[in-house]
Nucleic acid binder design. Structure first.
Length: 284
DNA sequence: CCGTACCGCGTTTTCCCGAC
DNA sequence: GTCGGGAAAACGCGGTACGG
């Protein structure tokens, strides 16, 4: 076997960079400076987000302050007021039990209206109901079938609405949220899952990503390109290497692989996983 | 000298989480 | 349930260092 030089030159025209060049020492205003964090530390506990904003630059927002306060583990002592004792008639609990059983859990704002009718705050009503052990019947999600789980591996999980659409097309009824929750529960990545990128493949086999790309370009590793909106400055569109093609490559080019450098868990998974014949998508 | 590893760039994509 | 800020991860590849 003789080694052939590989050229990375794609003959692309030079395009100017889109962003301003990096200047050492300069930072984007969206990143929080130590001074800004000190302001949050100082004013948040007593004055809340509003007090912090008064001392922070104009581009800071309330939610930004909440994020930083959360990171610092701070809580604000604003809001609230004197505690009010809720007075109720002695038979209130009985009335509540009866009213609660007639409550329509599917209707939004039902608890709000009941609180209004009984003349008590909404938060107090739900707290009382909890204490009395009153529950609201909720329709449980029907269990997931194997067919639905198989479909999970093929839908674009980064686009929940489109997922729900595909489920409907296949005759299933799952909301976008339900699908996202399921994806999390069964540990499915929401990232692109129709194959490996050159970099992912390289990491598994212990190659440099450039070496991997060279194999893709030379055709020794069968790979296609994924259409996207990546710019020429980023190197253009990405590679897609299907698990089966990568497995073929491992078997054919075994002598080139340095087993000290491979990701042993990922490699064994690649070699042993069961894939759907037609789509080559791992079936879980 | 050649082939590969390493570093870093500019950008998009994705995740996380709190507020509303 | 939805929105949005913040940040990490991901990506391909140019440039360069390094080892045999």
């Amino acid at each position: 076997m003789s080694l052939q030089p590989v050229s990375f030159s794609k003959g692309r025209a030079h395009l100017p960079r889109l962003s301003t060049p990096y200047i050492p020492g300069r930072r984007d205003p969206r990143f929080w400076t130590n001074d800004e964090i000190d302001i949050v530390r100082r004013y948040y506990p007593t004055g809340g987000a509003a007090a912090c904003l008064a001392h922070l630059p104009a581009h800071r927002t309330k939610s930004g302050v909440y994020v930083q306060a959360g990171k610092l583990g701070l809580t604000a002592k604003v809001g609230g007021g004197p505690k009010v004792r809720i007075e109720t008639p002695p038979d209130f609990d009985e009335t509540l039990k009866d009213a609660w059983s007639e409550l329509d859990g599917k209707q939004r704002g039902a608890v709000n209206r009941l609180a209004e009718r009984l003349g008590v705050p909404r938060w107090w009503l739900s707290q009382r109901a909890r204490k009395l052990g009153l529950t609201m019947p909720h329709k449980k999600q029907p269990p997931w079938t194997a067919a639905e789980d198989a479909l999970m591996a093929k839908v674009p999980l980064h686009n929940p609405d489109r997922c729900a659409e595909i489920f409907r097309e296949h005759g299933f009824r799952r909301s976008p949220t339900a699908i996202m929750v399921r994806a999390k529960r069964i540990g499915l990545s929401r990232r692109f899952n129709e194959g490996f990128s050159a970099r992912q493949a390289a990491r598994i086999l212990g190659f440099d990503d450039k070496t991997m790309t060279a194999y893709c370009i030379s055709g020794e590793l069968k790979a296609s390109k994924r259409n996207g909106n990546r710019l020429p400055q980023q190197g253009g569109s990405r590679w897609i290497i299907t698990p089966a093609d990568l497995r073929r490559f491992v078997i054919d080019q075994l002598e080139r692989i340095d087993f000290r450098k491979v990701d042993k868990f990922e490699l064994v998974h690649l070699l042993t996983m069961v894939t759907d014949r037609e789509t080559d998508i791992p079936s879980r």
